[in-house]
Amino acid sequence: MDIFLQQIVNGVTLGSIYALVALGYTMVYGIIGLINFAHGDVVMVGALTAFTVITGLLGAGAGLPVGAVVALGLAAAILVCTTLAFGIERVAYRPLRRAARLAPLITAIGVSIVLQNTAMMIWGRNYLRFPELWQSRRFVIAGASITSMQVAIVLVSVAVMALLLLMIHYTKLGTAMRATAQNPEVAGLMGININTAISIAFVIGAALAAAAGFMVMAYYQVAHYHMGFILGLKAFTAAVLGGIGNLGGAMLGGLLLGVVEALGAGYIGDLTFGFLGSNYQDVFAFFVLILVLIFRPLGLLGERAGDRA
């Protein structure tokens, strides 16, 4: 098997999930300048909600087709995550809108801790095994194996991202959200309710997070109250890599990070003469973060400060 191609396939799969999560970071940052550290935990809540609904329905033996069970699980996850994110913004961030930047940042870390601990109380501390829903098929192309699961993850992610881009760039609501990100005061003069625009950014980000949470759980067949932490950090890295505040950047950053990480994991043994194994793959994401912050702090597609969209 060709390790290089194989790792590209794995990296693109993981990268499209990073991209979905990164979009949530970047939309919120674009509109209120906040790094929403609780976003990764919203992904976790999405995964665990889908876990409960799907395993519950399957276990109850209601005889629903698997597709319907998945749809219900996903719908529940999206509902819970969007409501949660809407509430978090209202309760935790909105009162601090005019406060110094550090205050909402610390609040976001606090929200993250609250979410993790609440999830731990609800779902326990153990790794939850998520069943294989469909017999995964495996294709071999040019020496790399691709599973139907991977194909599905990439296709769903691409479709969702395309829809988001269309919405943001070609609808009045999307234009209003970009206007709010660029100049909230003037957006208000246009009749745009800034609070609504901000809520919508949180809600869209949370819907993407729910989908990402479900997919990452289905991919690894495991869920855990702590799963949002590293995933969130990596998606944040992806957002910074692409240029935080920039939607296209989040997508590009997510994909690139997934590929870099997968290639890193594939070759780390060779690179370190067998000293480090692929369980060190997480270091690559943060190595990338450090390099970006040093050499291109505005990210690949980032623009001058104040010009975020």
Binding site: K172, T175, A176, A179, Q182, N183, V186, M190, D307
Partner: peptide, 16 residues
């Protein structure tokens, strides 16, 4: 709105 086009700026004027 510096990153909206001229036309988008005008459309925002008619937002409501």
């Amino acid at each position: 709105f510096r990153q909206l086009t001229v036309e988008e700026n005008l459309v925002m004027g008619a937002f409501i």
